[in-house]
């Protein structure tokens, strides 16, 4: 399981579920910005990383190694109100899964943004996702909507590395049960979608507005602060290759560690996303 390399013949799929509820307006401890702004900044950095990683030759287009989707839940832009929609803005507004080359060619803008690690340093990066917050937290609906794309994607790529779905949230789900099905069962439905290389991976990153110690890739729910145990139960274990990457990145990863981060700061969020979206670490094939 989880051995498949990413290539243009068998691309990967990365889906980010981004909490855009009203609570994301709270300041992210130590950053001077809201959690919505911080999460958008990190996401744009992650997307840029993916584009750079998929650029193998100078002046050559980005290779189609991934199909990427970012779905915001909470406040919506395209149709104002509460709901779930693609979080892409600009030319990609309303798009679900977007091939990486198309993503690279269609940012909303290129802006000067602060560094994720050091606030005093800034650099110009492309922007695909804007910070948005409002309304409640329809997390179940987000899984239902994203699941349709994941399902269709797996039909087209039955032998690819399984889809990776990363949920970034700061609070309580407000739509469980959704269609009479509770959140854990929505997650089971999502992770029930499989390729020949394994089930869909579902990772969670919980953000906290208050300064609290970070817990990254725990191996047991025991001792986790709320909502850690419940999130732990819904989170997929880290595949061996990702666990190896996490160890190389300095994290204490054990055999049963799951793709969960609690009270993640901004730089930790980026590192977790990078680890969670890094498939078997071998040179990408053509």
């Amino acid at each position: 399981m989880y051995q498949q390399f990413v290539s243009r013949a068998d691309p990967g799929c990365i889906v980010i579920l981004l909490d855009r509820s009203d609570s994301m307006k709270l300041p992210w401890s130590g950053t001077g910005a809201t959690m919505a702004q911080g999460a958008a900044l990190v996401l744009n950095n992650l997307l840029l990383d993916l584009c750079l990683t998929a650029t193998k030759e100078v002046h050559e287009p980005v290779r189609h190694y991934f199909d990427v989707g970012v779905f915001g839940y909470g406040a919506c832009l395209n149709t104002p109100g509460e709901g779930v929609e693609s979080a892409f803005s600009g030319p990609l507004a309303g798009r679900g899964l977007v091939p990486l080359p198309e993503l690279a060619e269609n940012p909303l803008a290129v802006r000067e943004e602060p560094s994720v690690d050091v606030m005093s340093v800034s650099s110009k990066i492309p922007i695909w996702v804007e910070p948005v917050f409002g309304y409640r937290t329809p997390m179940c609906e987000a899984i239902a909507v994203a699941g349709a794309y994941v399902f269709d994607w797996v039909q087209l790529h039955p032998d690819s590395f399984p889809p990776i779905v990363i949920n970034i949230t700061d609070g309580m789900v407000t739509d469980s049960p959704y269609q009479e099905v509770a959140l854990p069962d929505w997650v089971r439905r999502l992770t029930g979608i499989e390729t020949s290389d394994g089930p869909t991976l579902f990772f969670n990153v919980f953000l906290s507005a208050t300064p609290t110690s970070e817990i990254v890739f725990p191996a047991s729910p025991v001792g986790l602060p709320p909502p850690g145990p419940d999130l732990f139960a819904m989170t997929s274990p880290l595949p061996a290759a990702m666990a190896e990457n996490a160890r190389a990145d300095g994290f204490d990863v054990r055999p049963d560690s799951r793709g969960l981060a609690l009270n993640a700061g901004r730089s930790t969020l980026l590192r977790v996303l990078q680890i969670g979206t890094r498939v078997p670490d071998v040179p990408m094939r053509s």
């Binding site: 609570s23 395209n78 104002p80 509460e82 803005s89 804007e130 409002g134 309304y135 789900v173």
Partner: peptide, 21 residues
């Protein structure tokens, strides 16, 4: 639905002036 406790607030966006937000 004891978890639906987050107040419904108007959406506020940090977006450019010409953006739909």
């Amino acid at each position: 639905n004891p978890y639906g406790v987050e107040a419904v607030q108007p959406p506020r966006h940090h977006a450019p002036a010409n953006h739909p937000a």
